[in-house]
């Protein structure tokens, strides 16, 4: 017989006992361990998730801060650059103005110097020229020239200038006649006659010689004089020349617009 019923019963019992034993020693511990590990892992995972979220939040915060910082920096940089720009503009303008001032001052100084130099040079030249002229005229003056001068003087007298006539007529005191050279008798006479003719009466003449007059002749009454001398002539010329030079200097002064430079500087900046 293949089936032994006692063995069947015994094996059934054995199997039930084995179930109990394995439940006690195998499934329970293993399942518990698995569960515990699962719990631990899930806890760790959730913790990691929380940490990740925190890290994410921190990262976002950091990003925001960074952005803010960047913005601030850009703003600061902008402000600073603008300030620097305005400062530069200001400095440039100042420097330009200063330079303009300096230049105008220097120009002024130069002009003044030139003027002074010119004036002194002119004066010197004038003086030298006239000195030379005087010297030359004095040296060259001779009787002929004297004569000629006197002739011209006489001519002038004869021209009957109403002024001269009134002077001559109203004079009471003797007239003073100064000449550079000693007049000859004929010449004295001629002058006396001519005066008399003009004045209508005899007028006494006091004759003096004075080399300073440079081949000239001067007829002076009290406070009034009729002069015809080279010195006077030269004096007139000198005065004219002075005036002319003064005008010349005034015209020559350079006139530049001070705004021109600043305009150009502004273009450079922009």
């Amino acid at each position: 017989m293949l089936i032994d019923w006692f063995t069947v019963a015994a094996q059934l019992l054995n199997f039930v006992i084995l179930i109990a034993l394995l439940k006690r020693f195998l499934y329970q511990p293993i399942l518990q361990a698995l569960d515990a590990r699962e719990h631990r892992i899930s806890a760790e995972l959730s913790e990691a998730d929380a940490k990740k979220q925190q890290a994410q939040a921190e990262y976002e915060q950091f990003c925001q801060k960074n952005q803010e910082f960047d913005l601030q920096r850009a703003e600061l940089f902008k402000t600073a650059s603008e300030e620097a720009k305005t400062e530069r503009q200001r400095l440039l303008t100042e420097a330009r103005i200063e330079a303009d001032n300096l230049r105008s001052q220097r120009q002024q100084a130069l002009a003044q110097e030139v003027e002074v130099l010119m004036t002194s040079l002119t004066r010197q030249i004038q003086t030298e020229v006239f000195a030379i002229t005087r010297q030359v005229l004095t040296d060259l003056a001779d009787v002929n020239l004297e004569n000629q001068m006197i002739a011209v003087f006489m001519e002038k007298l004869r021209s009957s200038d109403p002024e001269i006539v009134s002077v001559l007529k109203n004079t009471a005191t003797p007239l003073l006649l100064r000449t550079a050279f000693t007049l000859s008798e004929a010449q004295q006479l001629e002058i006396q006659q001519t005066i008399a003719k003009i004045a209508g009466s005899e007028i006494e003449l006091q004759l003096t010689t004075e080399a300073k007059l440079i081949s000239g002749i001067e007829l002076s009454s009290v406070g009034q004089k009729i002069v015809w001398t080279l010195a006077d002539y030269l004096g007139n010329v000198e005065n004219n020349l002075k005036n002319l030079l003064q005008q010349h200097i005034d015209v020559d002064k350079p006139e530049k617009h001070p705004t021109e430079f600043s305009k150009r500087a502004a273009e450079d900046v922009s």
Partner: peptide, 24 residues
């Protein structure tokens, strides 16, 4: 029956030995 007992012994003791100190 004897072989079955032997098997039960092997299974139980093996399980007991392995699960004695389970690592976490």
């Amino acid at each position: 029956i004897v072989t079955t007992w032997l098997l039960m012994l092997i299974l139980t003791i093996g399980a007991k030995l392995i699960t004695r100190n389970l690592a976490q």
